[in-house]
Design a protein around this nucleic acid. Structure first.
Lengths: 227, 227
DNA sequence: TTCTGTGGAGTGAACGTTCATTCCGCCTGT
DNA sequence: ACAGGCGGAATGAACGTTCACTCCACAGAA
């Protein structure tokens, strides 16, 4: 009976349905203008439906956006785990996940920016602070990338940096580049993606001390900072 | 006579003045809630002034935010260039600028997030697309970090990646980490900053098969600046 | 000194607009 | 004929902006 379903019905992705039109319009607009920058009237016009129709499918604007985020975020995570093999080497798992983010961003620019908008909103940061996990079927465990980092540190393949730093060193460049790509500032071909990911790996990988020259110690560069 | 000055009068930073109260409140609120998320009434309340007072100093809401951005962005760039020596090695110049961004972000969290909000807004991206330069006294030339990258590539010290990728590999992690720091998700001490910057450098540095000698060509870098 | 006129900073209620949300008549499929 | 999905006008709240007014510091007259 409840039309405003909180659950994400799995096969409700019938394209052309009013609900899907509303969702797609919302993603497109909010990814560009943000939550407060896109009125319901704008969504209705972009979707080609009446404003009232939106409230037939979603309780209010907040619910609309929250439900879309859950759905998009879930699909995003599923995409990353597609053909993911936990038995591969640390490096290969790392590259698989990172390449997946790149791919997803290039192929789903609106969804990508939508997720980013949400994460940077007050709601998103509060969720991040509570360690939010999308409960869309999986076990709600840690993100696979964090598992890779932990395993890599245990094997001394990945540097002993704080987890947040490792995430920043990999997700940061990817998000930056994908956003530039979406904005039309750069053409993201496979070569650029691969060389950038190789650079990311070099940033986080633990160097073996066999070919390490004693000339410079990059862990403490020119320290005249205040204690 | 014109109170709505477009110019940024240099010594109008009298703290306690109504204008400065409005600016600080705007930065604080917009950095958290975004442009459309912070009404004028909220700014007025936070600043402890009447709503009408804001329009005594700024033509409208757009002008208010744009003027603040110009001012904040200008101070930010000046901070980066403080004690900057263009004769240092590529690596030292790189570290100086990146450390400056870190420092600025940690010490000015509201301003940092304000700049980020602005850059990610439709206005900001359109400005970025037109290669926006802050005309606050300097010559309007390229960002120094881009110069460092170009010089580093000419010396084969920095990888031959697209400029956007190099920027993403350095600014991306920094912005990510500073935002985590502001959100209270990580404690950004000097050690973490240094090791993260070392990792960034490893990501972008060109590996040479011969051991890199410190005295190869770093002492006179002014000759291979842009032609 | 005291009083009074003046000008500009400051205010917040008022205004028209736009927002999110509701409601009701239409229209289509059965 | 009828039920229900649907559109868009209706609605009240909230928004950006304005403006008539208060307040205060100060100059000049008495």
């Amino acid at each position: 009976m409840n039309v405003h379903s909180t659950e994400i019905s799995s096969t409700q992705t019938d394209p052309g349905s009013k609900r899907e039109l509303i969702i797609q319009a919302t993603i497109r607009l909010i990814s560009e203008y943000g939550f407060h920058g896109t009125p319901i009237s704008m969504i209705a016009q972009e979707a080609g439906v009446g404003a009232g129709t939106i409230y037939r499918y979603f309780k209010d604007k907040d619910t609309l956006v929250l439900e879309i985020f859950k759905q998009v975020h879930c699909v995003f995570k599923k995409t990353l785990l597609h053909e993911y093999d936990a038995n591969q080497t640390i490096r290969d798992r790392f590259l698989h996940l990172c390449r997946g983010i790149f791919q997803y961003g290039v192929q789903n620019p609106y969804e990508f920016k939508f997720i980013e908008q949400f994460y940077n909103s007050p709601y998103g940061t509060s969720l991040r602070r509570e360690k939010f996990f999308c409960n869309c079927g999986d076990t709600g465990q840690d993100l696979p990338l964090e598992q890779v980092f932990a395993a890599g540190q245990a094997q001394q393949v990945i540097k002993d940096l704080p987890l947040a730093a490792l995430i920043a060193l990999t997700i940061g460049p990817i998000v930056f580049l994908v956003k530039d790509s979406i904005a039309g500032l750069i053409q993201l071909d496979q070569t650029t993606i691969n060389s950038t990911l190789a650079a990311c790996w070099e940033a986080i990988q633990q160097e073996t001390d066999t070919n390490r020259q004693p000339g410079s110690t990059p862990s403490s560069p020119s320290t005249e900072e205040k204690p």
